[in-house]
């Protein structure tokens, strides 16, 4: 019993080490700006093939960021490959867990939007994309921390 819990502890520490990677804080803000642009265009083109394609693309982007990791998120890759090398070194690195949580919330809204638009309800899709657009814009423009605002409220409601 003691050994198995010890092994579990070690695994948990490894998971913590992997998920608690430190990142350049400008990466998620760049990603927020690109997401803002993509979501805005998808709202303007809602109901057309382009609008649905953009919603599907952004759903995939958020899914990769939330479930695989920020390194697998396409906008993060663009930032690291093309933008970060041209910028001065970041003043401070940051925990990757808060932006990943924001990606998960974004995925929730976009999954609802994608299912709705595929079922033909552009109204629900518009509302869901509108929330995601507001959150992505706040993140990019004001460094808004979604995890700070909603995580504890979810936890308080859950139990």
């Amino acid at each position: 019993m003691a050994t198995s819990s010890g092994k579990y502890q070690t695994q948990q520490n490894l998971i913590d080490l992997c998920t608690r990677a430190r990142i350049d804080p400008r990466g998620p803000r760049f990603g927020g700006a690109v997401s803002t642009l993509v979501l805005a265009i998808s709202l303007i083109t809602m109901g057309t093939a382009l609008g649905t394609t953009l919603i599907a693309w952004q759903t995939l982007v958020f899914a990769l960021g939330a479930f695989v990791g920020l390194r697998a998120q396409p906008y993060g890759w663009v930032f690291r490959t093309f933008i970060q090398p041209r910028l001065p070194a970041p003043v401070e690195l940051e925990d990757s867990a808060p932006p990943r949580f924001a990606q998960l919330v974004g995925f929730g809204f976009l999954a609802v939007a994608l299912i709705s638009v595929l079922l033909g309800s552009t109204l629900i899709a518009t509302i869901a994309v509108a929330f995601a657009l507001g959150a992505a814009f706040l993140n990019a423009a004001f460094n808004f921390c979604l995890g700070c605002e909603v995580f504890l409220l979810f936890k308080r409601l859950a139990r």
């Binding site: 709202l43 509108a130 706040l138 004001f142 808004f144």
Partner: peptide, 22 residues
């Protein structure tokens, strides 16, 4: 319609963001 919604959200989010920041 979409353009109107986008502007409305960006304006609302900016007002909220300024309030949040202060």
């Amino acid at each position: 319609n979409g353009i109107f919604i986008v502007f409305a959200i960006l304006i609302l989010a900016t007002v909220f963001g300024l309030w949040y920041r202060s």
